[in-house]
Write a protein that binds this DNA or RNA. Structure first.
Lengths: 227, 227
DNA sequence: CGGTATCCCCCGCGATACTG
DNA sequence: CAGTATCGCGGGGGATACCG
């Protein structure tokens, strides 16, 4: 509570909690459906366990988050309360502003693992083939350790692998990292990048054709950049 | 730029700037029409000059604020750019959430000077009498130094005085501080408080009758509290 | 998996005084 | 009025190792 601003304006009272470092990102993860501690961490990889715990405790104290019911303590996930769900328009407004007006991205923002993690939540599994589908992503200009990822869809669930899962990929995507980030953000059309050869697809012709329809892109991709 | 979160999600990019301590309050002041350095300070009294300058510089670097044109440097005010004006929905969303869901106010949040400063921007001067009107506010339970204030309206402009301006008040208001804060926030109706005698009005009968119509209350007063 | 515990550094920020 | 300069501290938080 050291963040007290000494005024009872609703913007000030809300900021005491919300405008702490990392908090918007934690709330974003919870709104996106994350429930487990480490699930949140994967969406906010640079946030340490200690600090995440602190933020979650603060959010719990403020009535924004509550622990799920479970006999075992560590099996209890984190859930948004009504007050937490009510933050959806706040995050939406912040994200829309960010998409329109925030600074351009730099090399240090381009975390391949995070990008793939974001993708795995935005695959339109309803239109994907039944059975198992494996998508391999290769960032052609990334160092070996973050060069390849696999998205494994099966029965509506999508897993992210950082090692070859052993199954033959149905579709392989090879792309420069920054270009893929720009496509993800809605700043460039995927199809043009495929036509120009900057993004290369490999796999059966029908799957290559359908692949763009599986990708829902970033939630904020439809928001036009104005900066 | 130490606030970098290492991801290019628009929520993260926006948070780097916006989720710094004090920043929302500075932006709130600018959106409310503040232009001069010390005008902003009056709306955020606990923010030091040094830190305010830092925040304004950051906002300028991010393209949210720009200096007005003027020959003399210090005559140049601060203005919101298009990117800055676009923060209006963000502040609105934060404030609405705060009004509905933020913690209850405590004694430390009840700054009488700030409350009067907020009031001075929300007087409906269009419906006030022509010529000069002086409103005296007395917080009956406040210490002597923050007990009395005067709002002086003249020709559409409203000044706040912390000393007796010398003019005879047209309306005198005597109220407990917390009660007035709750009325201001829209949590209690002014008229009921007047009827019960908790808020006492003094002055000519017609002015006493009209006085409630002069007060526009907090921007967020119409938002219903849910907590 | 879901945390704790500890150590330590750095820098954010408050306070105070001074200036064009 | 609109800052700048300086100093000093507190604690936020990064790194690392450990635990139920």
């Amino acid at each position: 509570m050291r963040q007290a601003y000494g005024q009872f304006c609703p913007v000030a009272l809300a900021s005491e909690v919300l405008a702490e470092r990392w908090t918007f990102l934690v709330v974003r993860e919870l709104l996106a459906g994350a429930r487990r501690f480490n699930e949140i961490r994967r969406g906010v990889p640079r946030l340490s366990a200690t600090l995440l715990k602190q933020r979650l405790q603060r959010l719990e104290a403020e009535g924004i988050v509550e622990r799920g019911r479970s006999s075992r303590r560590s099996a209890a996930g984190y859930e948004l309360t009504s007050a937490g769900v009510a933050l959806k328009p706040v995050i939406a407004a912040v994200g829309e502003w960010g998409q329109r007006w925030a600074r351009d991205i730099e090399a240090k923002d381009l975390d391949p693992g995070w990008l793939v993690w974001a993708m795995h939540r935005r695959l339109n599994t309803a239109v994907m083939p039944p059975g198992r589908t494996v998508i391999e992503i290769e960032f052609v200009d990334a160092p070996a350790s973050t060069r390849q990822f696999w998205l494994v869809h099966s029965g509506g669930a999508v897993d992210v692998c950082i090692k070859d899962p052993g199954y033959e990929p149905d579709v392989r995507v090879a792309t420069p990292l920054r270009l893929w980030a720009e496509i993800w953000r809605g700043l460039r059309p995927l199809k043009a990048a495929m036509r120009s050869g900057a993004v290369r697809l490999d796999g059966r012709a029908d799957l290559r054709r359908d692949f763009p329809g599986w990708l829902m892109l970033s939630v904020f991709a439809p928001v036009g950049r104005l900066r």
